[in-house]
Amino acid sequence: MSIKLNLHTTPSVPLEAEVITPQRFASLSNEDIAALPVQHGNELAKLGDFFTVSGSANGEIELEGDLRLVKMIGQGMSSGRIVIAGDVGMHVGAIMSGGEIVVEGNATDWAGAEMLGGQILIRGNAGHGLGCGYRGSRIGMRGGQIFVQGNAGSETGGAMRGGLIAIGGNSGDFTGVNMRAGTIIALGEIGWRSGASMLRGTIVTMQPARILPTFGYACTYQPNFLRFYLLHLRAMGLPVSDEQVNGYYQRYSGDSIELNRGEILVFAG
């Protein structure tokens, strides 16, 4: 039986609840969990002031309620599983190194920011800065996998250096900005200035894209590596078609203002 957290009092201002991780809950009684500190605006509060705690710790946490103002859930988690029944606030899964987070609704900004490992599945939409590096950081997501079945906002995978971000819908402007390595696949469109200043890494889109003039067209070909990435996405529930798996892609190399070792692959049918 997992630990269940039911939101009984909706926070009036953002609630910083980075204590909600399986490793933090391990070996704690429900009373101890309820006594864990959270930051409610400028006031220190207890988790139990907002959540009813039930169940028992087995490495999994289930959360229910309107969590749009609850931030940092799963931040820094290293193992276990968190299932969020609806929408969730900022920084979910940021800096996590292991385990799995499932968001049944939408996630707002900075989901998986500077993530190191593990997996995040967002069944709705994701906000800005998905898997991105924080302001001032040179490196964003370094490992792990993020799957978004809906759309993602701007700066998805910014400064990313490893791992996989897969988006079932569209990804916003500056997707993969300052990217160092890793893979971003959008089954929809990518926004304007995607790949700006990228050094290495791969951005894939299944829709026509406006490519920065600092990217050069190389060829239209069938990238074999993409086949097992797309089959993996399909296995994770994203709507990948056979045409996309077997299809041709335009390859653009860039950003030439940097190393020019990055690539944008645009589905060509």
Binding site: L164, T202, Y221, Q222, N224, F228
Partner: peptide, 19 residues
Amino acid sequence: ISKVLNGRRFWRIPVMEGE
């Protein structure tokens, strides 16, 4: 180019036919 998926590393080596 190196790619890592599910903990397994793959290499994409450019060749005259593609990769």
